[in-house]
Write a protein that binds this DNA or RNA. Sequence first.
RNA 1: GUGAGUGUAGCUCAGUUGGUUAGAGCGCCAGACUGUGACUCUGGAUGUCGGGGGUUCAAAUCCCCUCACUCACCCCA
Length: 467
Amino acid sequence: MTQISTKPPSGMRDFLAPDLARRRHAIAVIRRVYESFGFAPLETPTIENLSTLLGKYGPEGDQLLYRILHRRERLARALEPKADGSRPTELDLADEGLRYDLTVPLARVVANYPELPAFYKRYQIQPVWRADRPAKGRFREFFQCDVDVCGTKSLVAEAEVCGAVATVLLELGFAKPGQPAGSFRILVNHRELLRAMVAEAGIDAALEGVALIALDKLDKIGADGVLAELVAKGIGAGAAAKLLEVLAAARAPGFLAARAGAATRPGSAAAKELVELLAIAAAGPAGPHLAFDPTLARGLSYYTGPIFEIAVDGLAGSMGGGGRYDGLIGMFTKRQIPAVGFSLGLERVLLVMEERGMFPPLATGPELLLCRFPDVSAADAIRVATQLRAERIRPDGARERGLRVELFADAPAIGKQLQYANAIGAPFAGLLGSDELAQQSLTLKKLATGEQKTLPLAAVAASVRSG
RNA sequence: GUGAGUGUAGCUCAGUUGGUUAGAGCGCCAGACUGUGACUCUGGAUGUCGGGGGUUCAAAUCCCCUCACUCACCCCA
């Protein structure tokens, strides 16, 4: 163990220039689209009080929270046995943790700033942390891109957040349904509908969670598999079979409309909401992508109404998810404020885009590497680089942006400098010798073809731009 | 949390039933044009074989421990 590991901690990553080019490309699209829907930006701290975070995500979520150990005297005190002789617990050793998602911090913010507009729409693109075991497409530090609407129970809010993420994906190059190669679906369901189905099957509300998780696997392990798992989790064989029956009925075409019309049956109101949501959303960009999926459950415990998840072929997890959480903000303030949101998983989106080759060519680095021969002083090279970088006014009055210019620091053999230009992917090299300097000119070399010409400094930018 | 797999040069990997000096390709460095890279040719350097212990005359190879990473499941974004 003499050698210090130079790798980042597991599940966390360094982002080098090519990674950042792709990430920034996606984030730029996300930000632009979210703002076009009228969402305002928000950023919140990396660290939140544990009292803010605990109890919002369910037991599994609490388990995955990164906690920040007390320091110095506070830690020493916390480590001592308590008055009753019992040992300190996890709760005694920390009262802060890293944020686990962006929704709970948003709820805290809404509760903390009563002066915010009654209908607060915000977007937030920041990393979150989960003490999970990393896997393909799963990290311990990852970025979420959230949009949320607070202050209304209107299903327009649902339609808008779905429309926003659908627009993002379309603008990133994901296809409409019918073009299976690049398509995505937004699955929708309703917490109340799920509860009604579980109740209808005669399953105890306490077992609702495990029942829903088993149900969610129907496509993977089949009806027999789900049945076996339900029984294994302590649900009677009769109730388990009944649940599958209820579910099969829910999958039949026309189920939602029928249930919405049957006002006395459990889940009728929820079905009605989904019917309405699908109808409203049909007018927006999410319309063609939305699909009712009665098995969609979602793990976070704060959801109360419609829930969503983005599914694409070939991705084990989801690219994003969301739903309505009318009770969450009320956990931080006496005011009960309804809200609904959608979260895109940046890494999941990038993963799928990578696999499908969806990135456009992304320009990075300098457009021109300025190489100097040994007979040119460093000061002269800097003067020329400065001139090339500066914006200038063309004779016709138009403004011309300066070039992205890197100046080679030393002046070794020109071949070395060209090798470097090649290595960093610069499309052009500018060769500066005493001849060029005397004429206020530059020999411009196009690396891809090797062709080169000497031209006045003032003409270099235009020539680079024209390729 | 469960199960499986992989750790050998900067990278991707080969290395036979244990056998003496551990290899290839790519990359890197130097040269074949003294103001020209990417292509070609020649030459060169590169390793605690993940780490520790054990078996053996002998270990990259077999055994144990440990660490790291990957995949699948679970769950999620």
